[in-house]
Design a protein around this nucleic acid. Sequence first.
DNA 1: TTAGGGACTTAGGAAGTACACC
DNA 2: GGTGTACTTCCTAAGTCCCTAA
Length: 587
Amino acid sequence: MYRCLATSLLGRGVPRPPFIPTALRAGSGGCSRWEEEKTNDGVKWKQLEHKGPYFVPLYEPLPDDVQFYYDGRPLRSSSLIANPSPPCPLHHVPLCHTQPSSFLPQEMTPQEQEIIKQLDKCDFREIHKYFVDKNEARKALSKEEKQKLKEEADKIQEEYGYCILDGHREKIGNFKTEPPGLFRGRGDHPKMGMLKKRIMPEDVIINCSKDSKIPEPPVGHKWKEVRFDNTVTWLASWTENIQNSLKYIMLNPSSKLKGEKDWQKFEVARKLKDVVHKIRAQYQADWKSKEMKKRQRAVALYFIDKLALRAGNEKEEGETADTVGCCSLRVEHIKLHSKLDGQEHVVEFDFLGKDSIRYYNKVSVEKPVFKNLQLFMKNKDPGDDLFDRLSTAVLNKHLQKLMNGLTAKVFRTYNASITLQEQLKALTNPEDSVAGKLLSYNRANRAVAILCNHQRSTPKTFEKSMQNLQTKIDAKKEQLEKAQQELEEAEDEFKDKKDAKAEANVQKKKKLLERLKEQLAKLNVQATDKEENKQIALGTSKLNYLDPRISIAWCKKFGVPIEKIFNKTQREKFAWAIDMTDEDFEF
DNA sequence: TTAGGGACTTAGGAAGTACACC
DNA sequence: GGTGTACTTCCTAAGTCCCTAA
């Protein structure tokens, strides 16, 4: 039996993407047809071959004169020095497949645990200095030495960084195992400082094709398991010891497999465009439902839609930092103001979201939403769940009924992309220079980043570089004034002499003045862009939420080179969109 | 219905590199 | 060529969401 895979994925009438791997195609002509693959998401592959993960070296012997002190006394602790004695002879050979178990970091012995009890009595300064110096020495290497290191890294990339998937050579995203070290985590993480252990071949599961060359484990070691599962996309996996969760080696975003999934994601979001008005009408009606559960669902969905909040799954307490999303909001995370700053029914949000990034926002909401929130908060403690009758599973089950493939996450993708499209329409002036158009693009991008709360810390050098830019602007203004004066003088001279030489001089001065004006405008644009962008990260939305076809169509329509908005990596990731998009594309 | 596991996407910071300017 | 800055890549944590079993 044959069928069109893309059609089955997205329903009838949806165009097939241009990047379905040719190996999946069977038959010829017309709508490509290929053998039926029983899979939920269409990612089943036929042949997968790779080299296995590259094991990352990190621990190394410290010189004997680098000392650790406890309570003021030198202590040669094997665990803290992490130094197998005598120094591991294999330190200087490539470690990809040669790591001996003696290279494992040692942990404190029971005797050491008896001595070392308080962190504030530990003095790591010598060890710290040793690594700082080493880092400096690495930076100070000659050009040739650096080139040699790069060549070595390229060689490893070439050997381990690719796999063969369905006959295509594809780049792997993360082909290295994660090195051991101290776990930091983000925000106030309860597991901060725990030892993240070295990954050994015995921890690693290899996934490849039965008939492919199975990767060789390092000498003297064996893999935990070799399996042949063609319904998943990972090439290798292991379980990490901090959260006891799985880690994967997967393909690079430029691969066909990831590109196809990306395309599917945006097609689902585009489908939402057709039904979103209906969904909004329904959740507005549900604000007045007799069932508390429905009301909570309707208000939560309103927040997800209007404010682009994340779904907010439940998390295991004590395992991760205390962060929340929409469904896991607690009473303490919102304040209600009947009136605030001239607005009615204002909800003040203040909570830590993903990566412990603060979400702070004051939003005027519809009266029924406000009343419902009052109701949900009644007789509850600050630490109680705001939506106590709701979970992400309940919400997503409901959304699935409204539209096939719809989940809370889709609203973020949809609202981000539609915002970009609308903002580009509103802000772009066809008469602008490319620099001016790019400012409009960045502003549209910024509107999305603000909506999605994509923040970054202000760059350390921000104030200084802003000052430098201002100095440049001032200098340019001075030049401009001078040029203006010179032009006036040239014009006076021309009035007197009326000769060709004087006329040519006027033209020359005019040109100079124009050029300086342009340069000043460019600098001003740069300064505005910089200031507005200080604490906002544009990359995340560009990479994950904005349908690249919107940006590509905009570039084509307004004559802006695609390279100005997508760098090389982004162009590789969005190759599928660059191929298929013309200037008329509408999200 | 819920908990836990599994597979995948999304996220910001650090490190590395390129480039402009002097 | 040196230096400061911006851009790019790497890294891996932290989410989402689906599935299965009890």
